[in-house]
Design a protein around this nucleic acid. Structure first.
Lengths: 182, 182
DNA sequence: CGATACATGTAACCGGTTACATGATTTT
DNA sequence: AAAATCATGTAACCGGTTACATGTATCG
């Protein structure tokens, strides 16, 4: 129950660690920043905040100085922080590389302050390993079938492979940058 | 009702255009090929095939030579082909670039045989335009906030931008390739 | 003889989308 | 006076996930 890994929930939890906020504030950020790869509808955010509060990861306090409608400001609890850290440190699988790349990037974005540079580097190295393995399997597949594929299908598949190659290149440059900064 | 644009439905419709198949065959493809960015569970595929049949886009025929359990082979109808073509030709929005890149690549993969090369090129050029516009807005945002961001957040955002830049590079090279092939 | 492959389907659950409801304040 | 913004929430709907059900045939 408290162990589900819903993307939106962790996005909210991470954002509340950077700054306690209301649901409305969170929505505004989702709408106005390019990190809006998450749902910005009230029908998803308010129930998600409920879930998080029921799970004991955040706690909401009603803002006293009520000018407008009362605001509920959510802050992470100790359990919420532990949960976020655990999520950031969770091992990377090939499934993550294939289906949840956005979640991996979200995790990366929250790591400073929670993890040491060496841990972030390990995370990225693991990403590189898994990505590189997946690229190999894609190349093998491509070699086997590309001759029979129509051109647009071939292009699409090549585009898919290149996207992973580009991601790998990024991850490796990020590792270098982190090691220099350390 | 018949106008929804569900990813899985169109993926199935497109695949049935390449070769009439049963639900089980479709599942096997989803499981075994790297184009498995779509749901492979029976709980999604069989209901989806029902939807498509009810919408009149495909028609299922029970395979006569029953060795094992009877197989239902689905073929696209004329209306289904029209629908697929319309989907392939639909204009690209910036939302597609941001949230449905996988759908755009899926569309690209189905285009040969349905669209002329000039139309495919137009599709890719539109992708390039929208991607490039979105990159500009991301760069503007990055310039404004990067100084205050912790390093891992900055890396993640940069990675996001680079992914779009790489995608743009791919699209441009694909345009060149198509023009040469023509 | 047990496991795996073939083949289709259903049911419970869960979360996101859309749209609506409410109501005060501020801007045009 | 109307529209937009602040701020939270609910309800209907829809589709995906997971797990289960069923039954044959083949492989080890």
């Amino acid at each position: 129950m408290t162990n589900r890994l819903i993307k939106l929930d962790h996005a909210l939890l991470g954002m509340l660690h950077q700054q306690p906020m209301s649901g409305y504030d969170l929505r505004k950020i989702f709408i106005s920043t390019p990190l809006k790869h998450f749902s910005d509808s009230p029908g998803s955010i308010y129930p998600a905040l409920d879930r998080l509060e029921r799970a004991g990861w955040i706690r909401g306090k009603i803002d006293a100085n009520v000018a407008l409608r009362p605001k509920k400001i959510f802050s992470p609890t100790a359990r919420g922080s532990a949960r976020l850290r655990a999520w950031l440190k969770a091992p990377i699988t090939q499934e993550d590389i294939i289906w949840h790349i956005d979640v991996l990037m979200l995790r990366l974005s929250f790591m400073s302050g929670f993890l040491q540079t060496t841990e972030i580097v390990r995370f990225l190295e693991s990403m590189a390993t898994e990505t590189s393995a997946y690229i190999s399997s894609l190349r093998d597949y491509f070699r086997g079938v590309s001759s029979e594929m129509p051109i647009s299908a071939k292009l699409a598949l090549r585009g898919g492979i290149e996207a992973y190659e580009d991601r790998l290149r990024f991850v490796r440059s990020a590792i270098k940058e982190l090691k220099l900064a350390k």
